[in-house]
Structure formats: C-alpha cells, structure tokens
Amino acid sequence: MEMVCIVCPNGCRLQVEKTSDGVNVRGARCKRGEIFAVTELTCPTRSVTSSVRTTVADYPVVSVRTDGEIPKEKISKFIRLLSEFTLDKKVPIGTILIKDVCGTKINVITTTEME
C-alpha cells in the first residue's frame, strides 16, 4: 500500500508491504519514515495539539500539546478530557497540566508563555 509520511515536511510517499518477516518500506528518505510506516500499520499514533480554558486575565485559552504521540483511537477521549480542564493560574511554558493521558504515559504540556 501507499502512504504519505507525516513525520516531517518532506512528506515522503512510502510504498509499504507486509511481508512474512515484517514490513517492507520503500521511498522513505530517512529512518523515521520507516518507523512511521510500521507504527501506522500496527498502531497508528499522533501528537495532538489543542487548548484549555483558563480563568487568567487576557488568556481565555492557553495552547497545549501532548509531549509525545498517543494512539489515534484515543484522540477523541483525550479532547474530551481537555474540555473538562480549567487552568486557574499563570504557568510557565512547558508546564505539565495532565500526567499520563488515558494511560499512555504521555503528558499534556502548555505551549504558550503566559506573560
């Protein structure tokens, strides 16, 4: 099958084949593309960016992201989790807001510096 690598802006077009001894990937310009193809076939993951509500003046919302990739199927659960969260004070950029999201060992961090 064909897929497009989304790891970096190169967007390599990959030819991926399942073989008896694993997965055969062609068209990747780097190792990360090959890893991407394998995970995409077995357990596709994404890093997710979004925002959370705050009660801090001038910041109705503050941007956040996962500090790694979470399984695709957990994205909607993750988004619901975020909508239940309210930040009530200024925190430095990179602050962990939620630890171990949906049992993935991945954390949610803020990505905006609140001045």
């Binding site: 802006p9 890093s47 960016t49 992201r65 905006t112 510096e113």
Partner: peptide, 28 residues
C-alpha cells in the same frame, strides 16, 4: 506563530516538532 498552536515547527532547525508559540518562545 502565537495563534499557530499546531505542531510541526522547527523540524529543520531544531529537529523537534514544536508548536508555533513554542517555536517563537525559543527566539523570544
């Protein structure tokens, strides 16, 4: 960049997938 909260910034420069505000913050 303040409003580009999606990631993918800095892959070339930092080898990381930063969000827009994070990328800007490094320079600020």
């Amino acid at each position: 960049l303040k409003q580009c909260i999606h990631d993918g910034f800095g892959v070339v420069r930092f080898g990381e997938k930063l969000s827009g505000p994070e990328y800007a913050h490094r320079f600020i």
